[in-house]
Design a protein around this nucleic acid. Structure first.
Length: 191
DNA sequence: ATCACCACCAGTCTTACTTCA
DNA sequence: TGTGAAGTAAGACTGGTGGTG
């Protein structure tokens, strides 16, 4: 999957942790970055161990600083080379796998957000097209009504009703008129 | 051509946390 | 004010796929 599709999202997505909820989370959890108090936050817990008999695995919550660095890195590159991943993991005191998962999730959720934004736009666009369609249908009905209701227009020369096929919309005055060139000639005189 | 390995993705599960009645 | 259900965010996992040596 190409990563270029999500690049535009940077403009439309709300910045992470900008909502009240995330802020409160940060206050609760991420102010305790100490690995003594929260070994999972420091990536110390070895997930490869068979702890199926032990207590349920505690979930890692990234510290504010870890999140900031990851976001910063993500803005520069949405995908990481193995070397970049290794270096970032070292800097963040996380496992490379954790960094990898974070980037995968970030890409996926960025894409999801972008899809939602596009969906909203398409919905609005569809609505405007529907309205335009309705308007044009009404116009067509009005024109049909004019066509089937002769003799509204009479020949200037013979005073006989004109055939419907000779009626047309004048592009200048937007009125139903005849194909008689004299009508358009009238406009030309005004120019 | 086949295989192993790796990275990525979509989908899903799980846990921590918030909100609200 | 405390509490439990429902909702949400996000870390982690799984299985499938494509690229590469």
């Amino acid at each position: 999957m190409p990563t270029s599709s999500s690049s535009s999202l940077e403009l439309t997505m709300a910045p992470p942790a900008s909502d009240g909820v995330s802020c409160m989370r940060d206050l609760d959890i991420n102010q305790v970055p100490s690995s003594d108090a929260n070994p999972w936050a420091a990536g110390i817990v070895d997930e490869d161990e068979d702890n199926s008999t032990g207590p349920p695995r505690k979930k890692l919550r990234l510290t504010k600083e870890q999140s900031r660095l990851l976001e910063e890195s993500f803005r520069e590159n949405q995908t990481l080379t193995p070397k970049q991943k290794e270096a970032l993991a070292l800097e963040l005191k996380l496992k490379p796998r954790q960094v990898e998962v974070w980037f995968q999730n970030r890409r996926a959720r960025t894409k999801l957000k972008q899809t939602e934004v596009e969906s909203e736009y398409l919905k609005r666009y569809f609505g405007s097209l529907t309205e335009e369609n309705r308007r044009l249908q009404r116009e067509v009905e009005e024109l049909r009504a004019l066509k089937v209701a002769p003799p509204t227009f009479l020949s200037a020369h013979t005073c006989e009703p004109l055939p419907a096929s000779t009626l047309t919309m004048c592009p200048r005055c937007e009125r139903v008129t005849t194909t008689n060139p004299s009508h358009l000639a009238g406009h030309l005189l005004l120019l």
